[in-house]
Nucleic acid binder design. Structure first.
Lengths: 336, 336
DNA sequence: GTGCTCTATGTGAGCGCTAACACTACCCGG
DNA sequence: CCGGGTAGTGTTAGCGCTCACATAGAGCAC
């Protein structure tokens, strides 16, 4: 066990060349004769040689690994994003090391970043959806390529985000277009940028339509909190349209409305956000806003690798537009 | 950018000792004078020194990283497991590198394992819930600590699994205990061990109660497939109890029954599997079986580290019992 | 044939660390 | 007062690789 495999010199010996030539073949350098290249490849295959990433990382100062710092990777959004990041990174030849973290405060983020740095990762992606994370990021070492996802739009850090405002605006407009006088909103926690953006988009759409936004109902992303808000909404006969900040909130609201005997979409229309795979099988199937996690991941990795290669800490940002997925939870409001 | 931080010799110089003494302090060796230890720690703090994991990995032959190979990390089960693994590994001072993989065939798994090995991970956890993965695992290099999760119970590889059979048996018995004559089952894909185990537990419970199992309905974990099965079930008046292989299947069945006007639990009782966070907010709240992902993760890491330390490839296995979470989707069958 | 460029390959150093061993005090028993 | 432990520390080698440079040979112009 743990028998060390062959090293570059073993390959070199077998191929009858120097270790440097093997290195050149491995790294795709030019100026290696085709015949030599083939001999080296054959030797590599014969010995089952595997380059030692640690040695390479030691001498180059960085490994082919991207560190990701994330909080709650069990939630649908973060989990999808993480998977997409991993996929994209793999396509670029990078592995992904996850450092999940209980809280997104300075200490936790900093510790996770430290762990990544001590492994000499090539760059770090921080999924930083809350206020406290933003502060933490400004105090981090500046000398490492870093990209934030879903972070604070106001901070001068390379950032990739879903356009929450546009998504929420689309959702709200969709409900207004169906004929509703106004749209209620069940939001996520107020320290999440996602929440803030979705609230903003909802408000904007209402104001643009000349409607005064009704009071905000705040949840915490969970179906449980959606249920509690839903119980309140069910008691208010004037409510005919609800936009929830995610699909799980919608599920909770849906159940509360169901229990109260208020039918969706006949009496109340609903739109969610996230397009979780089950949303099409809610009762009724939920109209929702779908963020493109693959696009987010691709933009993030691209921004990160640009920094790695250029050696400059750019402060670019990129915004990914979400799309509305129309199902059966929206209808015209009932006649009074 | 990428300015190399201080190295061990810098710390040594500042503390007025040799680099080796610094190494000893870092690795908690005995035989370092308390006063020296403090001087070294002070120097480390002053310089902001961070040990270089790559250099350590190079000389020791392994890094403080655990590789995880997984397929569909967007599904609730795998995502939870991954998060739990990461958490547990972090507590033991290990980082987790994810290598997700499109298919669980030999080529894909082998490639992911290779990638991990070239980074000299300390060990590998493979989440291998399907048949094809099992075959792949037997052809892998034997000289690296490896643990499978949710893998093939018949293969001689260290394995940690949720006790699918017991969980399914509990679910089925719960329905029988409520007075149902028989229990129908909507399963997952037949090449998943999870599915197979859940089918087996369901069958066992029925046979033990002297009931002939009704025909199996096979889904693919998705709410969509649950919906299709649900439409069939709704048309059969003799169906009064359904056990689905996961909660999302249950969601689909629930909607099909709802559309057909068959009430749950009044006419039909249901039990799911997984206890996704939203299950409590289905209509009605779903009784389900909860696997303990934390326990699985802990057992896996423990088994893995035992191999790392002992240097032997043990073939232990560990089974984690799930628990039934009772909600409102089960009732006595209707009087005929 | 001399001097040049260009390609293909080899040589040596060193990345930052740990392991093995060497060394220096100092204490102890006889 | 000397042999022999035992704490505390230093010295050296080398893990497997890449980088910078050295070298060798081929091709070509004059």
């Amino acid at each position: 066990m743990a028998v060390h495999g062959p090293a570059m010199t073993d390959v070199a010996r077998l191929a009858g060349v120097s270790h440097q030539t093997v290195s050149r073949v491995l790294n795709g350098h030019p100026n290696v004769r085709e015949q030599t290249r083939l001999r080296v490849r054959a030797a590599i295959a014969e010995l089952g040689y595997r380059p030692n990433g640690a040695a390479r990382a030691l001498v180059t100062g960085r490994s082919q690994v991207i560190g990701v710092v994330a909080q709650n990777t069990t939630l649908y959004g973060p989990a999808s994003l993480l998977a997409a990041l991993e996929q994209t990174a793999a396509e670029e030849g990078f592995a992904v090391s996850v450092g999940s973290v209980r809280d997104l405060d300075y200490r936790s983020i900093s510790a996770a970043v430290e762990r990544h740095l001590s492994h000499r990762v090539a760059g770090i992606v921080v999924i930083a959806p809350v206020e406290s994370a933003g502060e933490a990021l400004e105090r981090l070492p500046k000398d490492v390529p870093l990209v934030t996802v879903d972070g604070d739009p106001r901070r001068p850090v390379p950032l990739v985000t879903v356009d929450q405002v546009a998504g929420a605006r689309a959702a709200t407009e969709h409900l207004l277009d169906a004929g509703h006088r106004t749209v209620w909103h069940v939001s996520g926690p107020s320290d999440w940028f996602d929440s803030v953006g979705r609230i903003e988009g909802w408000r904007e759409a209402l104001l643009a339509a000349g409607v005064d936004p009704p009071p905000l109902m705040q949840g915490d992303w969970s179906a449980a909190s959606g249920y509690r808000c839903g119980q309140l909404l069910a008691r208010m006969p004037e409510v005919t349209a609800v936009f929830t900040a995610n699909d799980h909130l919608a599920l909770g609201v849906l159940r509360a409305l169901h229990e109260a005997g208020r039918r969706v979409p006949d009496e109340i229309s609903m739109v969610g956000f996230d397009d979780v795979p089950e949303a099409a099988y809610f009762i009724p199937p939920l109209t929702t806003v779908r963020p493109d996690f693959d696009a987010v991941a691709q933009a993030s990795i691209q921004l990160l690798l640009a920094q790695v290669e250029s050696g400059t800490a750019g402060a670019l940002r990129q915004t990914i537009a979400p799309s509305l997925v129309s199902r059966d939870s929206v209808a015209a409001p009932p006649r009074p």
